[in-house]
Design a binder for these strands. Structure first.
Lengths: 158, 158
DNA sequence: CCTACCGATCGGTAGG
DNA sequence: CCTACCGATCGGTAGG
């Protein structure tokens, strides 16, 4: 940022608060991005899952540095702040589970444990930041489509 | 380890060397675990992928602490050692891609980009260490089966 | 937002 | 493997 390290303390009380401000902002971006998709219960679950993956990879791609801090260092927050982050993460992951549960209830998706299935989608989504490079050949949107196809249709030929 | 921090320097030259010894050992475990599966080209690709996921989650579950260091901190190695780690990782991920390519060639798996498909499987595999707890209700083997089903058959009802 | 500074911790060494 | 120690870095404060 072109600023002396000591100057940061005019803006934050401690290094730990700075970490929390970064991590909490990313957590909010994830929640904000999925809220409209979670609310759109009339739409087919497959489309909503695809949209959620698009949204997630978009948040990561637009905030690659801070998203990496979010995934890497949220555990380093003090217990109270970590609790606030965990609540937002739980809300976010709950939205994924609810979308899958909707699809299972309607028969659109095969019978499955929404918790386990959401974990699969979130694994792909959360691992993304470790390998995505903006200068690479594929856009986050194209990558989201590729993985949505894999997770919806599977690998087995038919 | 019940030892003074300074005493470690009787065994390692630097903190960086200690990091490398941990990370390199985990990298070797991954490679060793997949070699026989990669070599077993007569077997259906779906079975080999399932076995590879079993093997991967087993390595992580049996080395939860060091595997976490592996995923979290391999980038902190100095460039030369980081290169050695990357070579092992590339060899490991190449084995996954080869299994998928075998399945695509034989028609057992649908037409797909083995690179992208392997990335999906490896995302699930590599994210595992962030949430797995040995005292939890599911064994690594059961978890591997659940995810293998999801990735092979997909979520869509049929 | 910078300079000057402080105490604590950290990576590492010497000597036993 | 421990004690005693060293220089450098780190988180943070005071004063401007």
């Amino acid at each position: 940022m072109g600023v002396q390290a000591a100057s940061l303390y005019a803006h934050v009380q401690s290094k730990e608060e700075l970490l929390f401000l970064i991590v909490d902002r990313v957590a909010d971006e994830f929640v904000t991005a999925i809220v409209p998709i979670a609310a759109d219960r009339g739409r087919p679950a497959a489309q909503r899952l695809r949209a959620a993956l698009h949204a997630h990879l978009g948040v990561v791609a637009r905030n690659l540095t801070t998203a990496t801090v979010y995934f890497h260092d949220w555990r380093a927050c003090d217990p109270a702040r970590r609790g606030a982050i965990l609540q937002k993460r739980d809300r976010y992951e709950g939205a994924w589970r609810a979308i899958i549960a909707d699809g299972v209830d309607s028969g659109e998706l095969g019978p499955c444990d929404p918790h386990a299935a959401a974990r699969g989608w979130l694994s792909v989504a959360n691992w993304f930041h470790t390998w995505y490079r903006p200068e690479g050949p594929s856009s986050p949107g194209a990558i989201a489509d590729t993985f949505a196809d894999l997770l919806l249709e599977g690998l087995i030929s038919r």
